[in-house]
Amino acid sequence: MPERNQAAFDFMASRRSLPAKTFITPVPSRAELEEILTVALRVPDHGKLEPWRLIVVDRAAMARLADLAEARALELGGDAEKVAKGRGQYDLGQLAVVVISSPKPVEKMPAAEQVLSAGALCMNIVSAATAAGWGACWLTGWPAHDAEFCARAFGCEGAETVAGIIHIATAPVVPPDRPRPDLSKVVSWA
Score class of each variant (00 low, 15 high):
88 G>E: 13
27 V>I: 15
119 G>P: 10
175 P>F: 06
63 A>M: 06
17 S>M: 09
47 G>K: 04
21 K>P: 00
157 E>V: 08
64 R>P: 00
73 A>M: 11
39 V>W: 02
132 A>F: 07
51 P>W: 05
48 K>I: 03
101 S>M: 13
19 P>Y: 07
54 L>P: 03
41 L>V: 05
39 V>K: 15
17 S>H: 07
67 D>K: 11
119 G>C: 15
92 L>V: 04
62 M>S: 03
58 D>L: 04
26 P>Q: 08
161 T>M: 07
149 F>W: 01
85 K>Q: 12
173 V>C: 02
18 L>I: 12
91 D>M: 12
176 P>Y: 00
159 A>G: 00
85 K>I: 00
137 C>I: 10
32 E>C: 13
53 R>A: 06
10 D>A: 09
156 C>I: 06
112 A>K: 03
65 L>R: 00
21 K>M: 08
43 V>H: 03
48 K>Q: 12
57 V>Q: 00
115 V>K: 12
129 A>W: 10
166 I>E: 00
99 V>C: 10
153 A>G: 03
22 T>A: 14
150 C>Y: 11
81 E>C: 06
50 E>H: 12
42 R>F: 01
15 R>A: 02
25 T>A: 12
124 N>Q: 12
18 L>E: 13
83 V>A: 09
114 Q>D: 02
150 C>T: 14
164 G>M: 02
149 F>V: 01
170 T>I: 04
137 C>N: 15
139 L>H: 06
98 V>L: 11
18 L>F: 06
59 R>F: 00
157 E>W: 03
71 A>Q: 14
178 R>T: 13
100 I>G: 06
59 R>S: 01
176 P>T: 08
19 P>G: 05
8 A>N: 06
137 C>A: 14
177 D>T: 11
147 A>D: 08
13 A>D: 03
10 D>H: 04
24 I>T: 13
27 V>Y: 11
44 P>Q: 12
172 P>N: 07
123 M>R: 11
147 A>C: 01
166 I>N: 05
78 G>C: 10
123 M>D: 12
43 V>I: 13
56 V>Y: 07
15 R>V: 00
69 A>V: 05
47 G>Q: 07
180 R>W: 02
149 F>G: 05
85 K>A: 08
12 M>L: 14
139 L>M: 11
60 A>Q: 13
128 A>D: 05
150 C>N: 15
24 I>Q: 11
10 D>L: 06
46 H>Y: 14
1 M>T: 05
35 E>R: 14
89 Q>H: 09
177 D>W: 01
92 L>D: 10
166 I>P: 04
178 R>E: 09
47 G>T: 04
2 P>E: 01
190 A>E: 07
89 Q>M: 15
155 G>H: 07
153 A>W: 08
112 A>E: 10
137 C>V: 04
47 G>Y: 09
153 A>P: 03
16 R>E: 13
137 C>G: 08
145 H>N: 09
161 T>A: 14
77 G>D: 13
